[in-house]
Design a protein around this nucleic acid. Sequence first.
DNA 1: CCTCATACCGGCAGGCTTGCCTGTTTGTAA
DNA 2: TTACAAACAGGCAAGCCTGCCGGTATGAGG
Lengths: 232, 232
Amino acid sequence: MGHRSATLTTPPARPHVPVKHIRRSQAARVEAMRTRLLDATLECLAERGYSNTSTNDIVRRAHVSRGALAHHFRTRNDLFSAAAQRLITARAAEFRERFTAIAPARRTPAEALTVLWSFYDDAAFVAMMELMIASRHEPELRAVLAPMSDQIADITAAVVADFLPELAGLPLLDGALRSIHALFAGLALGALASSDGQGRGADVRAFVQVLVSLAPQFTAQLTAIPDSSEAP
Amino acid sequence: MGHRSATLTTPPARPHVPVKHIRRSQAARVEAMRTRLLDATLECLAERGYSNTSTNDIVRRAHVSRGALAHHFRTRNDLFSAAAQRLITARAAEFRERFTAIAPARRTPAEALTVLWSFYDDAAFVAMMELMIASRHEPELRAVLAPMSDQIADITAAVVADFLPELAGLPLLDGALRSIHALFAGLALGALASSDGQGRGADVRAFVQVLVSLAPQFTAQLTAIPDSSEAP
DNA sequence: CCTCATACCGGCAGGCTTGCCTGTTTGTAA
DNA sequence: TTACAAACAGGCAAGCCTGCCGGTATGAGG
């Protein structure tokens, strides 16, 4: 179950393949270089963290010269912002893929929760957290990350609508989905400091499991409740 | 409702009160110095973040010489570990205080949720997140933070038992409480990167509010369910 | 009152990082 | 083929940070 160190980038084609003397178009060259750099950045981010990652670490890992990086990303922040952008779009794509890959017979809320959690119990999400923390002081990075929350909500809603139609009409669905995302994020954050190496809040996830399995039951009662909401 | 910048430390006695020529015992001196240093560390942590905070920043803010810090904390990590320890114990104390301070008439789940959230929508929790992220590479810090998760669970359980006895016996109470903590943590984390300056996931918290208000209802149905748990 | 341990002070050297700068190679287009 | 622009290489200087060190002041004990 420990999904850790899942595909953060495309694993092949990276280790020790010098990009030399293969006669490629310039567009292909820059694309390869950017990919190399960005992937290395994301990996360093997950391993060493935002501010423990120097540009030297990155070029070393990418097997690229210092000047190459400077040529494609003028400043360190540019690099990290681009990496953040790449991470977000890559994840959005993988999100849809992984869900559409679920066999129609298995498209249950429980399975969906498992897949969803795999996105949080993941090296990429560690990188994501690093970026979120760092974005507090890097406006450019923040600008990249800001719309992410709503994007996630939209994509999740779409996935639910497509694959779990029985839940599609639920009254507070949007809030519920956002809640689950927040909960998983909190779990992942807590896992960073917790000594609980493999548990990763399995008990909490079990509780969530039970909760969603009960969703249909109390959805009926919801309509008859004196809406005492308006959050504090 | 924006609780931000709540009491991270004891605000009085800090600004510009030179500790000189007042004839105090040595024990008092070291205590004052440690407090000064640790408070400044925590403040810097919340404002600048873990690795944007240099020891110079700290001594500058604490109005203390560089040597003083070196004398009390041999290394930068020692300082941060001590600060983390201090933060944890201080928060635990404040946690109980704030809950016992609730007027008996107001001891409702809704009120409890509001108070609980105030602990996450808080400069101190920003510092906490910084420490959690940093602890990934600082074993000493990690050792300090590791037991925190269970401590929180224990304290929360105790508070519920004392002040919300009607919930005390609920079947999956422990999981539910941990879930709420994780959810709030995730909300706080997301708020770092979100442009949603003041919202802070109010909608999500509203959902949680509704959910707990329904807790008694479906707790009955829980016993009759084919336990298909064992989290994935 | 005197002595000593402890608390505190401020500067120095070593190491690391970033951004820039010059020089070389590669692709493209005339 | 030739000339130019873009891609790439690697070194340099300025700046900052940490840990340490000798020197001073202050409180404790005889």
